[in-house]
Simulated assay, not measured.
Amino acid sequence: MEKKKKDFASITGLPEELGIDADLEKVGQTLSIRKDTRRYGKPMTVVSGFEADRSELKELASELKRRLACGGTVVDNEIELQGNHVERARDILDELGYRVA
């Protein structure tokens, strides 16, 4: 099941060459971050609320893992990061242009 990408150029009337589609798509999403507990009481940070396709989500997960120096994965349109990184992940996502609730 593939989601159709939004065509912001047709909505805003601005040329596609400006490359604002990605920025507008980020701002249109509201992400949530929560701390979860896994087996043996290990903390896990879960970021959800994405409308991006799986390849973009994997790239973002890779960036978060690199900057937070932790492991993680993408499961069901959510990014799972090993450890409690709620505040740091919020700061990084804000820096990257995402809106975090």
Rank of each mutant, 00 (worst) to 15 (best):
L57G: 02
K6T: 09
E80A: 01
E2N: 08
G13W: 02
E63G: 00
L68P: 05
G13S: 04
N84L: 03
K35M: 12
T73Q: 07
D21G: 14
K42Y: 14
A9D: 10
V86S: 10
C70T: 15
A52S: 12
M1V: 07
Q29E: 12
L24I: 09
E78I: 00
K3A: 14
S62F: 14
A69F: 07
A9L: 05
I79L: 02
R34Y: 07
R34D: 13
L57Y: 08
G41T: 09
A69C: 01
V86K: 15
I20H: 01
A61S: 15
I20S: 00
D76P: 00
K58N: 09
K35G: 01
V74K: 02
K42H: 14
E87Q: 10
K6V: 13
S10V: 02
M1F: 13
A52V: 07
R38P: 00
L68E: 11
L68A: 11
N84S: 14
D53E: 15
S32A: 03
F8W: 15
L24R: 01
T37Y: 14
K26T: 03
P15I: 00
K42P: 01
E16I: 05
T45F: 11
M1N: 12
D76Q: 09
S10D: 06
E25H: 11
N77G: 05
S10E: 12
M1Q: 09
T30E: 14
L57P: 01
L81T: 04
A9Q: 03
Q29Y: 06
P43R: 14
T45L: 12
V47S: 04
G19I: 01
S48F: 09
R66K: 14
S62A: 14
F50A: 02
K5T: 07
D7I: 06
N84R: 05
R67K: 15
E51C: 03
F50Y: 07
D21P: 01
E87L: 12
L31F: 08
G19A: 05
D7C: 02
D36H: 11
T45Q: 11
